[in-house]
């Protein structure tokens, strides 16, 4: 399974943002408030840092995460989706009144593990 995937709606939103802003990049965030979301930024604004890893591409946009955070989260897979409502972060899609979400992709044994 690809470590990074995106829903069709997310891909569409990414294409729109690229038309408007040029090259974009996703940074998986952490911490308070919108901490578990992936932030979409222009590549020029926040290029991957020396301690980041690029996990893959979603719709031709690199998906970046802090290396230690990735290890501590147990090297999960990420599925990027988009939902209505602006987040409070600086993620670019906020101006369109939507926000990206990082989900853990559904796994085969989901049914029996439902809370």
């Amino acid at each position: 399974m690809d470590p990074i995937s995106a829903t069709p709606a997310a891909v569409e939103a990414i294409e729109r943002l690229r038309e408007k802003h040029g090259s974009i990049v996703f940074h998986q965030s952490g911490g308070c408030c919108d901490g578990s979301a992936a932030m979409c930024l222009t590549e020029a604004e926040l290029p991957p840092g020396p301690n980041d890893v690029v996990l893959g591409m979603i719709a031709d946009a690199p998906f970046v995460i802090d290396a230690e955070q990735y290890e501590r989260w147990g090297r999960p897979n990420f599925e990027i989706d988009v939902a209505p409502g602006a987040a409070e972060s600086f993620s670019l899609e906020g101006s369109d009144g939507v926000h990206f979400i990082s989900r853990a992709p559904t796994t085969a044994n989901d049914e029996e593990n439902q809370p």
Partner: peptide, 13 residues
């Protein structure tokens, strides 16, 4: 700023 880490990095940048 109070919020998540990626925006925190941006703020410091």
């Amino acid at each position: 700023f109070t919020g998540e880490t990626v925006t925190g990095r941006l703020i410091m940048q």
